[in-house]
Design a protein around this nucleic acid. Structure first.
Lengths: 161, 161
DNA sequence: GATTCCGTTCAGTACGGACTGAACGCAGTA
DNA sequence: TACTGCGTTCAGTCCGTACTGAACGGAATC
């Protein structure tokens, strides 16, 4: 178990943050622990310091490594895997945006455009009245304006982080 | 049940979006339905068009109204409550930021500052070595730099949406 | 080649929370 | 005052999923 109150509280905060974003809390805890550890830690050491199973640590470290949040390092004369945090969180956020959010935004914009065609079909088959169809089209336009606005964030994000 | 394919797909998308953000999917579905409805809908009508219970609609509409995402309107000669969407989603995001994200950011920044003091106590009580203490302090500083960066988003967000 | 020491995988459990159905409260109506 | 129609509340169920413990595989040591 971690003995420092200060460390514990940031580990807890990191866990809660992850949970809030839909990630396993253990993932946040692992990163928090490594973030405040001057030396790379073994999988077993992480497990016992956090009081969780080695299985959770194993899957958690895989996730974190796949995102470039931690790195696996060799400790000579030691067969265990050791992990250390990569402290550039801004870069992580930037990557998350580029690889996850941005593609999703682009895709949803395309789908929104295609949707108007579907709505027209619904209108022609009588599933929508003229009034409903017109209204939906107008609403879809306000949606794409919003999407445009969100996408204009991209360069700002890349610039600041 | 909703009869238009186009409408169904945006309702589904809204539901998934909410679920991904940690909100009940029904909340997104309700907003999606109202967003594409030219007339205000009764609680009962919402329930049957979405195929969910009136209880869910009741709690969902309360949530949405508390965020200013929908509005309750009176339909003369009709005892039922009716709801309509407020289509300015950008404003919703702005409010969510002001009322939820920003306070949280500010609080966490304060806590981070206080944490250094806790870490010092841990060091003095022997829970941390000097090396660990110094390292933690440096890491906390990189954290507050990140927080500063995130906070500099604020004016941009307010400006764009 | 046998053994020990790792890390991973997988089936099973536990838990949180969304959703439901029924009971309740409360207005309007007779 | 009884009754009906409406929305809310609450206990209970259901579902997704994070987490665990044990079994497995693989590499290094003897």
């Amino acid at each position: 178990m971690v003995d420092s109150r200060g460390r514990r509280s940031v580990i807890e905060a990191a866990g809660n943050l992850c949970r809030r974003v839909g990630l396993p809390r253990t993932v946040g805890q692992i990163y928090g622990l490594l973030f405040l550890s001057p030396r790379a830690l073994s999988l077993e050491s992480i497990a016992e310091q956090l009081g969780i199973s080695k299985a959770s640590v194993s899957t958690g470290t895989r996730q974190l490594a796949s995102w470039g949040a931690i790195r696996q390092v060799w400790v000579p004369g030691n067969r265990k895997d050791h992990f250390e945090a990569i402290p550039e969180i801004g870069g992580l956020i930037r990557n998350a945006y580029r690889q996850i959010l941005k593609p999703r935004l682009d895709a949803s914009q395309k789908r929104a455009a295609a949707l108007i065609e579907v709505l027209r079909q619904d209108y022609e088959t009588g599933a929508l009245t003229k009034e409903e169809f017109d209204f939906c089209c107008r609403r879809m336009h306000t949606l794409s304006r919003l999407q445009k606005g969100l996408q204009s964030f991209a360069p700002l994000l890349e610039q600041i982080l």
